[in-house]
Computed example of a mutant assay.
Amino acid sequence: MTHPIDSLVHAAVFGDGAAKANARKQIHLQARKSGAVASSIYSLYMAIARSEVRAFTTPAFNIRALTYDSCRALFRAAMRHDVGAFIFEIARSEIGYTEQRPSEYAACVLAAALREGFRGPVFIQGDHFQASAKKWATAEGRAAEMKALESLIDEAIAAEFFNIDIDTSTLVDLSFPTRDEQQRANYEGTAHLTKYIRARQPKGITVSVGGEIGEVGKYNTQPDEVRAYVNGLIRLLQGQVGISKISVQTGT
């Protein structure tokens, strides 16, 4: 006999119109009621920064296929080994080529938590919400790309992605002579989207926003690049809550 949660997931992924939307809504409501709550990891990161919690690595899993089944396996393993924080994430590019919109992805993750009896915060993250350098080259392209990123953020927050990594590192231009000039488009893009998120995050929730400096696979990030990026963000955010982490290229 098919388990009720399995049936809900099938409707949430393969259903039509109202049936799909209703299944996703029911999954979110049931998960919240059972204690598997879509959450922001911001408070944990801040506690680590204040040395209130011993620093540790928070693993993040990009689930591109068989999302419900893969997440069930992850929850089982986490409960078996008494694992702490871990993240389920999907990048902008992955959303595109796997055809998993945020609402579908979040529903599958939360349904997996329900099915396995997981209780606790569930961290769902938008990974590499990345700007296209090619599109950014013209004013028209820049406006369209920013609008696309804003729309994706709206969609993600509505699906209870309370962790979002902004990746405008693609806009870094090393042809400029100073680090500030090289990082300017990067920190300006991050600042704009951070403000956009803060204006739309649900009341009582501080979305964990990540930034990025070095593109994966390129040269290792230098300390003065980090300083230029952070100083630029601080100037533009003007006291608003900023980012909670920075991804750098370390050669690993």
Score class of each variant (00 low, 15 high):
53 V>P: 02
179 R>H: 09
36 A>S: 10
65 A>C: 10
3 H>V: 04
120 G>L: 02
170 T>H: 07
62 N>H: 12
247 S>Y: 00
207 V>A: 01
221 T>S: 14
83 V>L: 12
98 T>N: 14
79 M>I: 03
109 V>F: 01
242 G>T: 03
150 E>C: 13
241 V>F: 01
194 T>L: 11
193 L>P: 07
201 Q>P: 03
154 D>G: 08
215 E>N: 13
128 H>F: 13
155 E>S: 14
123 F>T: 03
140 E>F: 03
185 A>V: 00
148 A>P: 01
101 R>L: 07
119 R>S: 03
24 R>Y: 03
113 A>C: 03
127 D>L: 11
64 R>Y: 09
133 A>K: 15
139 A>I: 01
50 R>D: 15
23 A>L: 10
145 E>V: 08
225 E>A: 11
137 A>Q: 15
48 I>C: 06
240 Q>L: 11
3 H>I: 05
230 V>H: 02
157 I>L: 15
50 R>L: 10
250 T>H: 07
191 A>D: 04
3 H>K: 13
196 Y>D: 00
128 H>P: 10
190 T>Q: 08
171 L>A: 09
122 V>Q: 01
236 L>F: 02
108 C>D: 06
119 R>E: 03
4 P>Y: 12
61 F>D: 01
25 K>H: 14
69 D>P: 00
98 T>Y: 12
91 A>Q: 06
39 S>N: 05
99 E>T: 08
10 H>L: 11
204 G>S: 14
45 Y>I: 14
59 P>G: 09
175 S>W: 01
243 I>R: 03
242 G>I: 02
244 S>Q: 13
115 R>L: 07
105 Y>W: 10
247 S>K: 05
206 T>H: 14
13 V>M: 13
234 I>D: 11
